[in-house]
Computed example of a mutant assay.
Amino acid sequence: MLASTAVSLGSLGSQLLNSPSHNPTKPFLLPLNKPLLKSPNSITSSSFLKSRTSVRTAVAAVDSSDAAVQQAGGEGGSKSYHFVVANAKFMLDEEEHFQELMSERLRLYGERNMEQDFWLVIEPKFLDKFPNITKRLKRPAVALVSTNGPWITFMKLRLDRVLQDSFETHTLEEALASSRIDIEFEKPVKWTAPYAKYKYGWWEPFLPSKTSNV
Rank of each mutant, 00 (worst) to 15 (best):
residue 117 D to A: 08
residue 117 D to I: 02
residue 117 D to E: 12
residue 117 D to L: 04
residue 117 D to K: 08
residue 118 F to G: 12
residue 119 W to Y: 12
residue 119 W to Q: 03
residue 119 W to N: 06
residue 119 W to K: 00
residue 119 W to A: 01
residue 120 L to N: 01
residue 120 L to M: 00
residue 120 L to F: 01
residue 120 L to Y: 02
residue 121 V to Y: 10
residue 122 I to N: 12
residue 122 I to W: 09
residue 122 I to Y: 13
residue 123 E to M: 08
residue 123 E to V: 05
residue 123 E to A: 03
residue 123 E to D: 08
residue 123 E to R: 12
residue 124 P to M: 00
residue 125 K to Q: 09
residue 125 K to C: 02
residue 125 K to V: 03
residue 125 K to G: 00
residue 125 K to D: 06
residue 125 K to S: 10
residue 126 F to W: 04
residue 126 F to K: 01
residue 126 F to G: 00
residue 127 L to V: 08
residue 127 L to I: 07
residue 128 D to Q: 11
residue 128 D to C: 05
residue 128 D to E: 10
residue 128 D to I: 04
residue 128 D to G: 07
residue 129 K to M: 07
residue 129 K to P: 02
residue 129 K to C: 00
residue 130 F to C: 01
residue 130 F to K: 04
residue 130 F to V: 02
residue 130 F to T: 04
residue 131 P to Y: 04
residue 131 P to A: 06
residue 131 P to Q: 03
residue 131 P to T: 05
residue 131 P to H: 02
residue 131 P to I: 08
residue 132 N to L: 06
residue 132 N to E: 10
residue 132 N to V: 03
residue 133 I to D: 10
residue 133 I to G: 08
residue 133 I to P: 10
residue 133 I to V: 15
residue 133 I to W: 06
residue 134 T to S: 05
residue 134 T to F: 02
residue 134 T to C: 07
residue 134 T to W: 04
residue 134 T to E: 07
residue 134 T to P: 03
residue 135 K to M: 04
residue 135 K to T: 11
residue 135 K to F: 03
residue 135 K to S: 10
residue 135 K to R: 07
residue 136 R to L: 15
residue 136 R to V: 08
residue 136 R to M: 12
residue 137 L to T: 14
residue 137 L to H: 12
residue 137 L to C: 14
residue 138 K to L: 14
residue 139 R to I: 13
residue 140 P to I: 01
residue 141 A to Y: 01
residue 141 A to G: 02
residue 141 A to T: 00
residue 141 A to D: 04
residue 141 A to R: 02
residue 142 V to T: 15
residue 142 V to Y: 11
residue 142 V to M: 06
residue 143 A to H: 09
residue 143 A to G: 05
residue 143 A to M: 04
residue 143 A to D: 07
residue 143 A to Y: 05
residue 144 L to Q: 12
residue 144 L to V: 07
residue 145 V to A: 10
residue 145 V to F: 09
residue 145 V to E: 13
residue 145 V to H: 15
residue 145 V to Q: 14
residue 145 V to I: 07
residue 145 V to D: 14
residue 145 V to S: 12
residue 146 S to A: 04
residue 147 T to A: 15
residue 147 T to Y: 09
residue 147 T to D: 13
residue 147 T to P: 09
residue 147 T to H: 13
residue 148 N to E: 13
residue 148 N to V: 03
residue 149 G to N: 11
residue 149 G to D: 14
residue 149 G to T: 08
residue 149 G to W: 06
residue 150 P to K: 05
residue 150 P to W: 08
residue 150 P to N: 05
residue 151 W to D: 10
residue 151 W to S: 11
residue 151 W to C: 09
residue 151 W to Q: 12
residue 151 W to H: 08
residue 151 W to G: 09
residue 152 I to W: 11
residue 152 I to P: 14
residue 152 I to F: 13
residue 153 T to P: 00
residue 153 T to D: 13
residue 153 T to M: 10
residue 153 T to V: 08
residue 154 F to Q: 11
residue 154 F to V: 03
residue 154 F to C: 06
residue 154 F to Y: 15
residue 154 F to N: 12
residue 154 F to L: 12
residue 155 M to G: 02
residue 155 M to Y: 06
residue 155 M to A: 05
residue 155 M to S: 02
residue 155 M to T: 05
residue 156 K to N: 11
residue 156 K to D: 06
residue 156 K to A: 05
residue 157 L to F: 11
residue 158 R to E: 14
residue 158 R to A: 15
residue 158 R to V: 06
residue 158 R to D: 11
residue 158 R to M: 15
